[in-house]
């Protein structure tokens, strides 16, 4: 027989804490999974990596030709 018996209040608190904790963990797992899928499905992306690359320099972009009048 247990020496200490939890009050019903503590049982409810425990269920609430566990439920909220598991919900948050599931949310994090879902956002992580979504991020992986988005990155895998995304088109080629180039971020700044502190090295000059002429292909992403706006100055080297071809100007859009104006239609002739």
């Amino acid at each position: 027989m247990a020496i200490h018996q939890d009050h019903e209040l503590h049982t409810r608190r425990w269920s609430r804490n566990l439920g909220v904790g598991l919900t948050l963990a599931a949310f994090i797992a879902l956002v992580f999974g979504l991020t992986v899928v988005k990155v895998q499905n995304g088109s080629l992306m180039q971020g700044a990596d502190h090295t000059y690359r002429s292909e992403i320099d706006p100055a080297n972009q071809m100007p859009v030709a104006e239609p002739e009048q």
């Binding site: 009050h7 019903e8 209040l9 049982t11 409810r12 608190r13 269920s15 609430r16 566990l18 439920g19 909220v20």
Partner: peptide
């Protein structure tokens, strides 16, 4: 005090689901 707390604001997780 404990008896008072059980009446409000101490929901179990199932209460939130409901």
């Amino acid at each position: 005090d404990i008896a008072g707390q059980t009446t409000t604001g101490e929901a179990g997780f199932g209460d939130y689901v409901q």
